[in-house]
């Protein structure tokens, strides 16, 4: 393209017209729509009950208080939940990543029966046994009421495995071939050559799996009977679904405080999503690229 044409084009493109203005306005409104529920929750969690009841519609807080957070932190449930969630997240992510990476590596190779195994795996995406056989399986395996019931069934996400496989396939073949000629085994090739070259993908899927395990509540609801083994999200669900004085009642009766139910609920929510909120803006690049690569190539 000639410089003249380039300059013409730039002139045409850089100028903001009404479309840009409306577009930016629209995008901003949508962003505010996404943000408001978060703002509201954080606001309520820091507001004293008296203010909350008096103010017809609150946009900015007049007084801030930490009472709600105090109540949440003084009860034990949030900490046991946090402990359980941290354990299942750590174990779960390691377990998920090992299984996923190994399978992605294998399916990136040619071997007799590959098609059969691949179809057998993909079939499970479209047909599953349903809730009851799954429930009975966990029961028969003796995983009832164990933390493993929230780790072992998570295994491999077929979508992540596929994206990873495609990423491996996009790496230069020569590296692997020359390593093989030098006598490197599959494990060496995977861990010394392929994985170091795939770090962005590894980080991305570690994050995805990490968030999924962090958000675990469903397996917990099905299989966990003992209160102190409940994951954080399930504890939170209990708090949200309870009404009025039920909220952390045992503790409050001792302390003799009338709880601000909404405040306590919102404080619990803010605490639960705090790690994700902190992590997210800095890791945004990694959060986005997994789906981007999977979408374009898939």
């Amino acid at each position: 393209m000639t410089t003249l044409a380039k300059r013409n084009m730039r002139n045409q493109i850089v100028r903001n017209n009404w479309f840009d203005i409306i577009n930016i306005l629209f995008m901003s409104i949508f962003a505010l729509l996404i943000l408001y529920p978060f703002y509201n929750s954080i606001l309520v969690s820091f507001t004293p009950q008296a203010d909350y009841v008096k103010t017809p519609f609150m946009l900015f807080p007049k007084n801030l208080t930490l009472t709600s957070y105090q109540i949440v932190f003084e009860s034990k449930v949030i900490f046991t939940g946090l402990g359980v969630t941290i354990i299942i997240t750590l174990f779960g992510v390691v377990y998920n990543m090992i299984l996923t990476v190994l399978m992605a590596y294998c399916f990136n190779n040619e071997f007799p029966g590959k098609k059969f195994f691949l179809y057998a795996v993909i079939f499970t995406m479209y047909f599953n046994g349903g809730l009851i056989p799954y429930y009975l399986l966990i029961k028969d395996m003796g995983l009832m009421d164990t933390l493993m019931s929230m780790v072992l069934p998570t295994g491999i996400s077929i979508m992540y495995m596929t994206v990873m496989r495609k990423y491996f396939a996009s790496l230069p073949v020569e590296l692997e071939e020359s390593a093989r000629i030098d006598g490197a085994s599959d494990l060496v090739i995977l861990f010394r050559i392929i994985l170091p070259l795939s770090m962005p993908m590894v980080v991305t899927f570690t994050l995805y799996y990490g968030i999924e395990r962090w958000n675990e509540w469903w397996n917990g609801m099905l299989f966990i009977k003992t209160a102190y083994k409940q994951p954080l999200q399930l504890v939170l669900r209990g708090i949200i679904q309870s009404t009025g004085a039920q909220v952390m009642s045992s503790h409050l009766q001792e302390a003799g405080i009338v709880p601000f139910t909404d405040g306590v609920k919102m404080a619990s929510i803010v605490i639960t999503m705090f790690p994700v909120m902190c992590l997210y803006p800095f890791m945004q690049k990694y959060f986005v690229q997994g789906l981007a690569i999977g979408g374009v190539k898939g």
């Binding site: 090992i98 299984l99 996923t100 190994l102 399978m103 590596y105 294998c106 399916f107 190779n109 071997f111 195994f117 057998a120 795996v121 499970t124 047909f127 599953n128 046994g129 349903g130 009851i132 056989p133 799954y134 009975l136 399986l137 072992l152 069934p153 295994g155 491999i156 495995m161 085994s185 599959d186 494990l187 995977l190």
Partner: peptide, 24 residues
């Protein structure tokens, strides 16, 4: 060795996906 490395993943799908399908 590829089969060996594939084994854990396949075991996962066999246990947690195909046994429930059998349970249908």
């Amino acid at each position: 060795y590829i089969y060996l490395l594939l084994l854990p993943g396949l075991a996962y799908f066999a246990i947690f996906k195909y046994i429930p399908i059998y349970g249908v």
